[in-house]
Design a binder for these strands. Structure first.
Length: 324
DNA sequence: GAGATACCTGACCT
DNA sequence: AAGGTCAGGTATC
């Protein structure tokens, strides 16, 4: 069954290319002729995958992304020390090799994102390396295996259901501790999963770029006393204690305090401005580089501007929740 | 226990 | 044309 719906949002408030090809998501395919984006995903509470297409008219618009926890988790394991076009390629490789065929539209075949069971049953580290995953191959196999094990305590639930339960039964610190128990998930990846896969809008994933912005534009820098306090805070969390970088963690906390409950999305916008260009998949199967649709200009950001960004982000987020 | 170092790959640059 | 650098980090020593 093919259905189109309309959601109106001005392009200046949300540009599909800037959301779907900017390093949040890696599995949207752009048909350059029709300018439609497509992917497979679970809709609402359905356990099955559907093909989803999005088209942006000059005056139209969609919502900010809230992705599947499991797919987000695996995608961001792939993201470490890597570039967007290769991450995109890897995510598609996972689907076409280990996912299930959902159907095809035109000449494009659509696959589901593989579950942890799919990966444990069919994938090996060696094979993933041959597919170009590099050292992340081991992380993915180890993580999928542990996920299958962990889920045995929760009868027959999906990866996403399991992760959603984790999110519900833990506070942020506890959830992060759980996420970082998997191979290949450190503080940055865990925070990306929280923000983009678990709707924790306040979480700011701190990477080299965000750290630079924070230090350069906000003069945020932890003192020794600050670091000692944080260390004390994590003494009951062995994994966090081991994996976290206290200096970056201080920045994360400070940005949350300063930017409030939608800090993560404000960060996304600032990151986009800082780094600019990106890439994505299209129906030819080629992964292309693309440029930021706006001018990629480095600017001195001031407080008023940041407030505007956060306000705008929050408004979009609230609107998207109303349409759900 | 903080801090340096290795790690796959491929696009881009010199 | 071969060689270096970089990409939204993590694991390991």
């Amino acid at each position: 069954m093919l259905q189109w719906g309309k959601v109106y949002i001005p392009r200046r408030e949300l540009c599909l290319a800037n959301v779907l090809q900017a390093g949040q998501a890696f599995r949207w395919i752009l048909n350059e002729k029709t300018e439609e984006y497509s992917t497979t995903m679970k809709i609402a509470n359905s356990p099955d995958y559907s093909i989803v297409m999005l088209r942006q008219h000059d005056d139209s618009f969609i919502e900010i992304l809230g992705q599947e926890p499991w797919e987000t988790l695996v995608s961001f394991i792939c993201s470490t020390n890597n570039n967007i076009s290769r991450i995109t390629k890897m995510c598609h490789a996972l689907c076409t090799n280990y996912g299930k065929m959902i159907g095809n539209l035109g000449s494009t075949e659509y696959y589901s994102f593989p579950s942890s069971e799919d990966l444990v049953e069919n994938a090996t580290e060696h094979e993933l390396r041959e597919l170009g995953f590099g050292y992340r191959a081991k992380y993915i196999i180890d993580t999928a295996s542990k996920m299958v094990e962990d889920k045995k305590h929760y009868d027959n639930c999906s990866d996403t259901e399991f992760l959603t339960k984790l999110a519900k039964s833990n506070d942020y610190d506890g959830l992060r501790e759980q996420l970082m128990s998997y191979s290949g998930i450190g503080p940055k990846v865990a925070d990306c999963i929280c923000l983009m896969g678990m709707k924790k809008d306040e979480v700011v994933p701190v990477d080299v770029h965000v750290a630079r912005i924070a230090e350069r534009d906000y003069k945020i820098r932890a003192t020794n006393t600050d670091l000692l306090k944080l260390k004390e805070l994590y003494k009951e969390q062995p994994i966090t204690r081991k994996k976290v970088n206290l200096q970056l963690d201080f920045i994360r906390r400070k940005l949350h305090t300063q930017w409030g409950s939608y800090a993560g999305w404000a960060q996304g916008i600032l990151f986009f401005r800082e780094v600019g260009g990106t890439s994505g998949a299209n129906t030819t199967g080629k992964i292309k580089k693309r440029k930021n649709e706006e001018e990629s200009v480095k600017v001195e950001v001031n407080e008023q501007e940041h407030n505007d960004i956060i306000h705008k982000t929050k408004r979009s987020r609230v609107k998207s929740e109303q349409t759900n």
